[in-house]
């Protein structure tokens, strides 16, 4: 390992999203946008955060972990939760022009915020840079933001990490593709998406919750990360949205010794055999 790598600080930005709670009823409003009046930190974003904290704990170099969220004012709750879990500081990009942002608009805005967050701080100018994300958001579920962000930042992309470790100024990642398990190395800077198989996220304890009160969250409008409303125009539009009619309960029987046969009869009748 190069001497210089051990000394160079590392700055990890973890993207965290404030999403409608899937345990409750989620709805699309009349303007065909997600109702974002309530929310929670996306569970899938706890895994990249845990990965960042583990890297910080294992590293023999200064590691700063920042949480970055994009969303309406309520989204600051997800930044706060990330601070309680263990991030060092947080950033919140919020702007009316981002309402209803599609993948393209989101990744443009995130690029601006990521670059601004990396530039913030004293020692970070020389720091090596890593962006960690979840495997998907729990609301939009496109899984396409990490790839678009990497492309816009012009850095390496590794998705679906089931394990990640730091080696000098590179990350070594175990990832799964459709047909194989891969071990890959990516030089930093890079964007890595982390699956829910990578680790067991910690819960914030009382001490961490108290410590989080002293940590800072910086809020930015688009103009403060060098972007205009035109820069974050969506390239897609939703033209219609309708709730799916709820499934109705069918026949429920209690097994009287012939239920196996009756299921097969039902399948034959429904022509699904």
């Amino acid at each position: 390992m190069a001497e210089s790598a051990a000394a160079t600080p590392l700055h990890i930005i973890v993207l965290v999203k404030w999403v409608p709670d899937y345990q409750l009823e989620r709805r699309i409003a009349e303007d065909r946008r997600m109702d974002r009046s309530g929310g929670v930190l996306s569970e899938l974003d706890e895994y990249p955060l845990e990965a960042a904290l583990q890297i910080r704990e294992a590293a023999e170099r200064p590691v700063r972990v920042s949480a970055l969220t994009l969303g309406p004012s309520g989204a600051s709750a997800s930044a706060k939760k990330a601070l309680q879990i263990g991030a060092d500081d947080a950033f919140h990009l919020t702007d009316d022009a981002l309402a209803g942002a599609d993948v393209a608009a989101t990744s443009v805005a995130l690029r601006g915020a990521v670059e601004q967050a990396f530039a913030t701080g004293d020692e970070e100018t020389e720091a090596v840079r890593l962006v960690l994300t979840g495997m998907a958001s729990e609301d939009g579920e496109t899984s396409a933001v990490p790839a678009q962000l990497a492309e816009r930042l012009g850095v390496a992309l590794v998705t679906n990490a089931t394990g990640i470790s730091l080696e000098g100024d590179a990350v070594v990642v175990d990832r799964i593709s459709a047909s194989e398990q891969q071990k890959v190395r990516a030089d930093l800077p890079a964007v890595v998406s982390v699956t829910d198989q990578a680790n067991d996220p910690r819960y914030p304890n009382f001490k961490a919750i108290m410590a989080a009160k002293k940590k800072t969250t910086t809020s930015w409008a688009l103009s403060e990360v060098g972007l205009t409303a035109d820069d974050v125009a969506s390239r897609t539009q939703v033209t219609a949205a309708a709730p799916r009619p709820p499934r109705e309960a069918g026949e429920v029987i209690t097994d009287e010794g012939d239920a196996g046969k009756r299921i097969v009869e039902f399948l034959a009748k429904e022509r699904v055999l």
Binding site: R247, V252, D255, A259
Partner: peptide, 29 residues
């Protein structure tokens, strides 16, 4: 469990022991 929420969306539901129902399904198939 007859109160399992899965029965609210199932087109056909069986309250019973799967270790008895599935072998019988296999036999019938």
């Amino acid at each position: 469990d007859e109160d399992a929420p899965v029965f609210e969306i199932a087109d056909f539901g069986v309250v019973g022991d799967l270790f008895e129902v599935i072998p019988q399904m296999l036999e019938e198939l």
